[in-house]
Amino acid sequence: MTGERRIRILIAKPGLDGHDRGAKVVARALRDAGMEVIYTGIRQTPEMIVEAALQEDVNAIGLSILSGAHMDLFPKIMAGLKEKGMDDVVVFAGGIFPADDLSALKEMGIQAVFRPGTTTQEIIDSIKANLS
C-alpha cells in the first residue's frame, strides 16, 4: 500500500493542428494499461508542454503531431526539458513523420516514434520498456 509508484505520462499536442483523436485514443489506451495520463489538449506551445511536464513531474511525454511542424517544435521542447534538468523524462512521438526525419528525431532524444499503423499495445510495450 505504501511506496507504490505509478507511471505518470503527459500527452500533449504541440502546434496548430486540431486533430486530437489519435492523442485521445492513445491516452485512453495508456489509462487502460494502468497509467496516469495527464492530457493537456490541443494547440500547446513548447513552453506550455515543458511547464506542464515540470509541474506534473511526469515520467514520460507523448507528443502527438500531424501538421509536419515537428522538426521546428520538437527541438524547442527537448531544449526546454534539458534546461529544466528533465533529461531523464522519456519522450515519444506519434503522428505523421517522413521517413527522412526519423534519424534526426532519434538524435534529438525522441526515444520512439509511432507512425500510422502502430497498435496501442506496441506503444504501451515501448513505454514500459523505456521506463523499466
Binding site: R6, A27, R28, L30, R31, D32, A33, G34, M35, E36, V37, I38, Y39, T40, G41, E47, M48, E51, A52
Partner: peptide, 22 residues
C-alpha cells in the same frame, strides 16, 4: 478519478486551464 479496475486515470483538468500554464 482512478479506474477501479486498471488503476489508470485520465487527468484532464489542465485542458480548461491552458493560459495559467504560462
Amino acid at each position: 478519478p482512478s479506474s477501479p479496475f486498471t488503476k489508470g486515470a485520465i487527468l484532464g483538468d489542465r485542458v480548461r486551464m491552458q493560459d495559467l500554464c504560462q
